[in-house]
């Protein structure tokens, strides 16, 4: 008889905790808190990453500092995500240092009513399409972006489908 594919056997058991900051991460966290002291950041450790929340007005300054600093040297923007928390947006910048190989997360909070945040293109050229996408799907204004045209949706699309409040079931495109 042909061989029968075995099925995975699953038993219920409580999952263990995720990974935590290692030695380097702790050192990085201290260093970040030190370097960014003037911006009054909220520093926290999420799993094995250091998360820094900064006020959005000073975001570009912060990123410039992170990129320019000799020891931090965050020269690579991995990912820019916009998360909709229903009352505010969170713009998340995942940074990476190619030379030093460490990572950090910078977050800014943007209130719903005033959905504006500075564009980081002057610091990270690669943020261009990310920001266009964020504008497209979440209706976030990235101030200072040279070309905030729709990227994924067509011109004239009504509404912001990335938001939690977008009425998908009532929405009729055609």
């Amino acid at each position: 008889m042909a061989e029968q594919p075995p099925r995975p056997h699953r038993r219920e058991e409580a999952p263990t905790a995720g990974p935590a900051l290692d030695e380097r991460g702790t050192a990085l966290m201290a260093l970040l808190a030190d370097r960014l002291a003037t911006f009054q950041p909220q520093t926290a450790a999420v799993l094995d990453e250091v998360v820094v929340t900064v006020p959005r007005e000073r975001l570009v300054e912060v990123l410039e500092l992170l990129k320019g600093d000799e020891q931090l040297d965050f020269n690579y923007l991995r990912c820019l995500s916009v998360v909709d928390y229903k009352t505010y947006f969170e713009v998340v910048y995942h940074l990476w240092s190619l030379a030093k190989r460490h990572k950090a997360v910078v977050k800014v909070r943007v209130p719903y009513e005033d959905a504006k945040t500075p564009s980081v293109i002057p610091v990270y050229r690669g943020a261009d399409w990310y920001e266009r996408e964020g504008h497209d799907l979440f209706g976030l204004m990235f101030e200072g972006h040279p070309n905030l045209k729709p990227l994924l949706l067509y011109e004239g699309f009504d509404g912001y489908p990335g938001r939690k409040s977008f009425p998908f079931h009532e929405y009729n495109e055609w």
């Binding site: 030695e23 380097r24 050192a27 990085l28 201290a30 260093l31 000799e70 020891q71 040297d73 190619l98 030379a99 030093k100 190989r101 460490h102």
Partner: peptide, 19 residues
Amino acid sequence: KVPVREEFKTTKVSSEGQQ
């Protein structure tokens, strides 16, 4: 190429990585 422990010393880290 990147020594894990010596990363965040107060002295200037030589950038002998990819740069």
